[in-house]
Design a protein around this nucleic acid. Sequence first.
DNA 1: TGCACGATGAAC
DNA 2: TTCATCGTGCAC
Length: 185
Amino acid sequence: MYKQKLSRAFYDRDTQLVAQELLGNYLVIHTTGERRVGRIVEVEAYLGSHDLAAHSAKGLTERTKIMFGPPGYAYVYMIYGMYHCLNVVTEKQGHASAILIRALEPIENISHRTQGPGLLCKALGIDKRWNGLDLLSDHFYLAKSLPAEPFSIVKRPRIGVDYAGEWAKKLLRFYIKDNPFVSKK
DNA sequence: TGCACGATGAAC
DNA sequence: TTCATCGTGCAC
C-alpha cells in the first residue's frame, strides 16, 4: 500500500541518504478524480551549489530559486526544449540540493512509458506549472512503501553530466537492481 | 538584445 | 551519432 505520506522531516536530511530511501516508495498524483501511482525505481542526487553538475552551482537564479528553498517541494524545469524533469528539494533552505526522479514503475493509472526523467513527466502531465508545488499536499506527494520490500541498490555515475569534471564521476545515481523500468544500465 | 547549450529521447 | 526544439544564463 501507499498511504503514508513522506514528511517534511524526511526530505530535510542528507541528500544521498534521502535519494536511496526514495527508491521503492511511491509518487502519488490525484487529478480529475483519478489517482495515478508510480513506484520510484531510479533517482539521481544533486548535492548543492558546490556540486558542479547541479543547476544550483550557477547560484540563485530565477530558475534555481526553488532548489534554494525549503525541502519537500517540487523543482520542475524544461530540458532540451521539449521535456520536463521532476526533482524533490532536500536539506535545509539555502542548501540548494535536490533529487532527480529518473524512472517509475507504473502501478496505477499510468498508460505511457516512465523509464526516463522526460518520459515520466510526459506520462504524468508534469510541466513547469508544477514547479514549486508542495509535496505534502493532498494531490501530489510521495508515500512510503508498506510493507517495505527488500531490494539491492545499484550505484552508478549520473547521466548527461560529463561537463562537471570530477563531479561527473561520483556515484550519485541510484536504482533498484534488476528492475526492468530503470532508464539505462 | 543575442546566443550557446543542456540533469533527453528517438531515429538513423 | 544526429537531430528536434526552446528557456535560461551570461556575454556583449
